[in-house]
Design a protein around this nucleic acid. Structure first.
Lengths: 113, 113
DNA sequence: TTATATTGCAGCCATATAACTGCACATATA
DNA sequence: TATATGTGCAGTTATATGGCTGCAATATAA
């Protein structure tokens, strides 16, 4: 094993996914984020740090408060990885495949006749 | 911590993502899959088991060989989770947002004048 | 039958993970 | 100035993870 701090590792944890869901609505401070969970503030802070390290979050300081912002561009990396698989479940594309197969089958029949 | 065996956990590991990439092309046996990696066959087998447990893979037996198939429907769960975030990075949708904001700004000016 | 191949399972080990607590530091506020 | 608040960091602990090896079970081949 080695230390991995990538997007896939980050979103593997359900608490971190929930944090992303919150921060995506509007930037929040660690304290405000932690109020939404049963875990201790420090525990949530650690999750935020992990999300921050892999650039899913960015931060802006305002006095002693730190606002964490959602970074959509990083999330897109997951979507990009997922994209090639999309055609395998997309019904619209499957319907098009079916159509193409049907046309090809018809051609086969013509060839065989 | 508790045992989690969900799709997000499964795709967190780079080896497992690579396995998915292979099997998505065509169903494969554990032995054939393992040939593509430096890890031991048993280690790869364990990864396959994890992917199988969370239904990212399905299996069909043929004599003593077991073919593992990619299950796109399960992968779609990730895409569905990702979907609400899409508008945050999609340029086309951002352009539409900009247009709407512009129209609203124009209305503001009219109100203020 | 005997040997070989394919696979899964059990057990071990080092390290990563996710939770906790305590504390230090900087910034507001009384 | 003294106190309260917001935050991060260090250290501890229990458990999960990912790698390995050895072995058993089944199916094919010689």
């Amino acid at each position: 094993m080695e230390i991995r701090r990538d997007v896939f590792q980050a979103i593997a944890d359900p608490t971190r996914r929930a944090i992303l869901g919150l921060v995506a609505l509007h930037a929040m401070t660690p304290g405000a984020i932690a109020e939404n969970f049963n875990s201790s503030r420090q525990t949530i802070s650690k999750h935020i740090q992990i999300l921050n390290e892999c650039a899913l979050l960015t931060q802006t300081q305002s006095g002693r408060e730190i606002y964490y912002h959602f970074n959509p561009g990083k999330m897109k990396e997951v979507a990009d990885w997922l994209e090639p698989y999309r055609k395998l479940w997309d019904e619209r594309l499957n319907a098009m495949d079916d159509l193409l197969n049907e046309m090809q089958a018809k051609t086969q029949v013509q060839k065989n006749s």
